[in-house]
Design a protein around this nucleic acid. Structure first.
Length: 934
RNA sequence: GGGCGGAUAGCUCAGCGGUAGAGCGCUGGCCUUACAAGCCGGACGUCGCAGGUUCGACCCCUGUUCCGCCCACCA
């Protein structure tokens, strides 16, 4: 290695090689060996959509989980990170239907069977992609156990779960008002509907003529207000408040529907009607509005459906039949004007329900669907968190979880799609009976013996199979060894956005079917957003393919994915607005490497709701990876032949060695603590700080004088300490930056007991270092002194190469001894000419200008090269600051209440601070007098 | 309408009842034989606003203003 030209770390060259090595070594495999007594650590990977491609959200959870998993693996756990992919019902079906559309076909042209064959073909083509992408990030999942939610065993689990829930009466079929996606033409669960603010909404008013009105009693028409005028085609009542005097004369009367001539009763309803809103009269459309549906049930109203599944008006809409709902809205308004019934409109803010998938506006519609009765399932899930069988981190989410489960509605699980798990229910054409069964077919109806049975056309909500994931992947309903060993799983780590969709449902199903929580901890991370805090979306053109960061990409390539089909200039401008720090970066992203991207993602605090991705920050962590690379290469030059036994040097004599071992103990302790507490940011931060600021900036520099001119004994001790520290630091960093650490670890001296890969080497503990407060205190003093000397050099513009005479003075004997003993280190780091002189105050000959290492209570003096005037100003500033601080301390100490009420140790502490400041002031004043002589 | 987060250095964010931190950016000096993706210095904050509790508040409480998110059937 020595003699090679200096070069930067090149991740591309390294990463593929080591990933292949880990796979080949079977590092990622969990063990089912009955003799394997290691404790288990299990994470079920949130399965990405089979047709999807890796986005930043995946990169985040993959990184976090990989850190958790690698950490535990190194700690000696039998780790299972269970990977899988999800069939993603609507999403996948939509993709394939879009392909068909380009060929001018619909799924109905193909028929169910041929369509499904087509989807499977697409799945086989594109389904492996996201798995391959994860591997670029270093994901160490047990790929041998990869599951797909529509694998035969997964499907069997789904069917079993459905049948059991049905038999227990928890799944039922019912006719209800549901959320209908007119584009995907399927029902949606409440969770799949996003409510969006509609700024263009209007409250439209029109009049219903009263039949047999008595003009003498009052108005002969009833004016209603609506945000959806076309729904008047389905009105079967108009409601007023029973106590509203304006409409008392209309109680019991009827209205004439202006288009169809239908008679519409006027009803009174105190629940539905708010007298002060709108016109005080509410049109009631039981078949297309949730409130009206309830009202209809209360009054026994007719439910008149006016919509076809594709969102057009059906035959009940009379002259408007066949029109799209929005076209019909305009047409209805036009007709109302023509009939003289329009009564005006005003802007009105409402919420628009949108399908999470298709984006189309959801229509409430009456339909017969399958539901899960959730309340009995929710109670155990609430209890499990309440009594701590499962904990949720960050804890803020517990409230949200409780609120959701405490107010849970029944779950509509059927979908009018073809791609998914078909509902295992058969419908008897003769008697209408439903047979729910584990069998693939039913020969005859158990009720009427009829032979004409057909399977329900619908499939299940994708999330139904997901809810079973922690145990279905382990073999349930079979009692497999894997299920036995790995359930309950340990941690469920995922984005908070699927707390309801997925986490809560897994809790319910896990408790129901397994009788035990599916995971011990729920770890929720925030959403990755762009640098300005905006959600990543196709519309905004601000999404980034994580692999473009890993491998590098031109901005043209990046925005081509972010905003497909848009003009490059427009896409670029949107992109640069979203990432101001990238805008200055030239033509594109360099290849940051997987390690840098991972370390960046791990360094964001997980409890933040939003994780604003900053390309500049990735750059910073790439620099860190490079730093690690270079530092280890440098160290290798000094430690090549060292032999290690896996423990820190027994009794290091050199202060610097004692110090670095103490810092090492602290850093690895903080690292494990951070990972255990789901504070990867703190863990990564501690290691980053240790490696760069302490190991590189101080320790490596401090070893130079030893290697250059130390005794053989000192050199030997330092070599071992250095080698040990590096080997340990690499192990500590490995979960975060697996590639570069493996690359270096393989070349670094290491104990013979180590396995073939760092990925299986033990994770460091504080026992790999040695806590040494004395060494820390002493080195802090040296740092202060060296820092003060450097500051003087810099402020007086002494050339960095120039050597200067240095004098240090302290009243404290121990301190003087320390400075004398460690003089060579000070001399090297400050570039001292000749010997470092250590003396008592008052020993100084004229001609020195001194500065003060305040905290160390040491005077630092440089001869000659400094300007007296500048130094005077500097000292004046220092005195000012010290005096200001003193004033505030004096004030506090003068307050009898403070002396009285503050804890004694705080008072002592403040007194010590004052004493120190007073000493400093004395130093500085003495200093000033002497500098003045210049 | 409820609920939950956020507001700290130019930017992105940590933090904490006892005299404010990091990265990036800015800035002065260095190509000092590991690293210029670097090294050594430096500047920079009435910790959203107003009250309160406390010997002491960036931190706890109350109110308030912005920003974001979630839940909810207001025509």
């Amino acid at each position: 290695m020595i003699g090679e030209p200096a070069k930067a770390y090149d991740p591309a060259e390294v990463e593929q090689r080591w990933y292949a090595f880990w796979v080949e070594q079977g590092v990622f495999r969990s063990s089912l060996d009955p003799d394997d007594r290691r404790p288990t650590y299990v994470i079920s990977m949130p399965p990405p959509n089979v047709t999807g491609s890796l986005h930043m959200g995946h990169a985040l959870i993959d990184t976090i989980q990989d850190v958790l998993v690698r950490h535990k693996r190194m700690q000696g756990y039998n780790v299972l990170w269970q990977p899988g992919v999800d069939h993603a019902g609507i999403a996948t079906q939509t993709v394939v239907e879009r392909q068909l559309k380009r060929e001018g076909k619909t799924r109905h042209d193909l028929g169910r069977e041929a369509f499904l064959a087509r989807v499977w073909k697409w799945k086989d083509q594109s389904g492996g992609r996201i798995v391959e992408q994860m591997k670029f990030l270093g994901v160490s999942a047990d790929w041998d156990r990869l599951k797909f939610t529509m694998d035969p065993d997964m499907s069997a689990a789904v069917r079993e779960a459905f049948v059991r829930l049905y038999e227990e009466g928890l799944i039922y079929r019912a006719t209800r008002l549901v959320n209908w996606d007119v584009e995907a033409q399927t029902v949606l669960s409440d969770l799949e509907v996003d409510n969006e603010e509609n700024v263009n909404g209007e409250l439209y008013e029109f009049a219903y003529p009263v039949i047999d009105a008595d003009p003498a009693a009052g108005s002969t028409e009833l004016v209603v207000a609506t945000t959806r005028p076309e729904t008047m085609l389905g009105d079967t009542a108009v409601a007023v408040h029973p106590d509203d005097p304006r409409f008392r004369h209309l109680h019991g009367k009827k209205l004439r529907h202006p288009f169809t001539g239908r008679e519409i009763p006027i009803i009174t309803d105190a629940i539905l009607v708010d007298m002060n809103f709108g016109t005080g009269a509410v049109k009631v459309t039981p078949a297309h509005d949730f409130n009206d549906f309830q009202t209809g049930k209360r009054h026994g109203l007719e439910e008149l459906n006016i919509l076809a599944p594709n969102g057009t008006i059906n035959e009940n809409g009379g002259e408007f039949a066949g029109l799209d709902r929005f076209v019909a809205r305009k047409a209805v308004k036009k007709r109302l004007v023509e009939l003289g019934l329009e009564r005006g409109s005003k802007p009105h803010l409402t919420t628009l329900p949108r399908s999470e998938r298709s984006g189309s506006i959801v229509e409430p519609l009456i339909s017969t669907q399958w539901f899960v009765n959730m309340v009995p399932l929710a109670e155990p899930a609430l209890a499990a968190v309440r009594d701590g069988r499962t904990t949720i981190l960050p804890e803020d989410w517990i409230k949200t979880y409780n609120h959701f489960l405490g107010n849970i509605q029944d779950w509509c699980i059927s979908r009018q799609l073809w791609w998914g798990h078909r509902i295992p229910a058969f419908h008897c054409k003769d008697c209408g009976e439903f047979v729910v069964t584990r069998q693939d077919s039913v020969a005859s109806c158990p009720k009427c013996n009829g032979a004409r049975l057909e399977q329900d056309e619908d499939v299940l909500d994708t999330w139904f199979s997901s809810a079973l994931w922690p145990f279905s992947t382990l073999g349930w309903p079979e009692k497999t060894p894997a299920l036995e060993r790995f359930y309950p799983t340990s941690d469920m780590e995922t984005g908070y956005d699927i707390l309801f969709f997925w986490v809560a449902r897994m809790m319910m199903m896990g408790l129901h079917f397994m009788g035990e929580v599916p995971f011990r901890r729920v770890l929720l991370n925030g959403l990755v957003v762009d640098e300005t805090g905006e959600k990543m979306s196709k519309v905004k053109g601000n999404s980034i393919d994580p692999l473009d960061l890993v491998h590098g990409a031109t901005f043209e390539t990046v925005v081509g994915k972010a905003l497909p089909g848009a003009p490059v200039a427009e896409a670029l401008s949107k992109f640069k607005k979203a990432y101001p720090s990238a805008a200055q970066m030239g033509q594109g992203f360099p290849a940051y490497g997987a390690d840098a991207v991972r370390l960046t993602l791990a360094s964001y605090t997980p409890q933040a709701r939003r994780i604003a991705l900053s390309p500049k920050r990735i750059e910073g962590y790439r620099h860190f990876c490079n730093k690690v690379f270079n530092a280890v290469r440098f160290a290798l030059g000094n430690v090549e032949a060292v032999t290690l036994d896996g423990s820190p040097p027994k009794e290091p004599k050199l202060l610097v060695n004692r110090w670095i071992l103490s810092r090492l103990a602290s850093a690895v302790g903080a690292s494990t603590r951070g990972i255990d507490e789901f504070r990867l940011d703190e863990s990564a931060g501690a290691l980053y700080h240790f490696f760069w600021d302490e190991l590189c900036d101080w320790y490596l520099e401090l070893t130079k004088p030893v290697f250059a001119a130390g005794t053989a004994e000192e050199i030997a001790e330092t070599k071992v300490t250095l080698a040990h520290s590096i080997e340990t630091a690499l192990r500590a960093l490995h979960p975060f930056i697996p590639f570069v650490t493996e690359e270096l670890w393989q070349r670094v001296p290491r104990p013979p007991s180590r396995p073939r890969t760092i990925a299986l080497a033990p994770y460091p503990t504080p026992a790999d270092g040695r806590d040494d407060p004395d060494a820390e205190r002493d080195v802090n003093c040296l740092m202060q002194v060296i820092g003060a000397a450097r500051t003087i050099r810099s402020e007086h513009e002494v050339h960095p190469g120039a050597k200067v005479p240095l004098r240090l003075r302290s009243e404290d004997v121990a301190r003087r001894e320390l400075l004398t003993r460690e003089a060579r280190f000070i001399a090297t780091l400050v570039k001292v000419d000749g010997d470092v002189v250590v003396e008592r105050p008052g020993e100084r000959p004229p001609g020195y200008v001194l500065s003060v290492a305040c905290d160390a209570d040491v005077l630092v003096g440089l001869r000659g090269l400094v300007e007296g005037k500048k130094e005077l100003e500097r000292i004046d500033r220092a005195v000012k600051k010290v005096e200001k601080d003193l004033v505030s301390l004096e004030k506090r100490l003068a307050d009898p209440k403070f002396i009285d009420k503050a804890p004694p140790e705080v008072v002592v502490q403040v007194r010590e601070q004052r004493a120190a400041l007073e000493r400093q002031r004395a130093r500085l004043v003495e200093e000033r007098g002497l500098a003045d002589e210049l």
